[in-house]
Write a protein that binds this DNA or RNA. Structure first.
Length: 107
DNA sequence: AGTAAGGCGGGCA
DNA sequence: GTGCCCGCCTTAC
């Protein structure tokens, strides 16, 4: 699915920015919200390339199976940030993901 | 124009 | 739980 105005990346960032504090979403959710459900991997790619780590809560994006997934500044840092927001983890897994998951309404 | 690299997901052993 | 494999999409080179 070609994107006209905004690049795929920018769309990913836009969605990522609206994940509330204390909530998480998944790479898959983002891909689906973009109408490109098969682009899960590209979503991770885009977040990895994100230039503004500080204003981009990409630490709130985790894998659909509950694992933390990657983070440019390291998974340990990702875990820290999530913990600070009240999301508990054990090992490299988020606990009770379904309670905190944020679903986007369609775009 | 080909190709490889990813912060993935799902399936199956 | 752990692996491995295959499919998928966007970017950068």
């Amino acid at each position: 699915m070609p994107h006209t105005v905004l690049s795929f990346r920018e769309n990913v960032y836009a969605l990522c920015r609206r994940i509330p504090r204390g909530r998480v979403t998944t790479y898959q959710e983002i891909a689906r919200a973009l109408g490109n459900p098969a682009a899960v991997r590209a979503v991770g790619n885009a977040l990895h390339a994100n230039p503004t780590l500080v204003f981009m809560p990409c630490h709130r994006v985790v894998r659909s199976d509950g694992h933390l997934g990657g983070y440019a500044a390291g998974a340990a840092r990702k875990k820290e940030l999530l913990t600070d927001e009240g999301i508990r983890c054990r090992g490299d897994r988020v606990l009770g993901l379904s309670q905190f998951i944020y679903h986007f309404h369609r775009v």
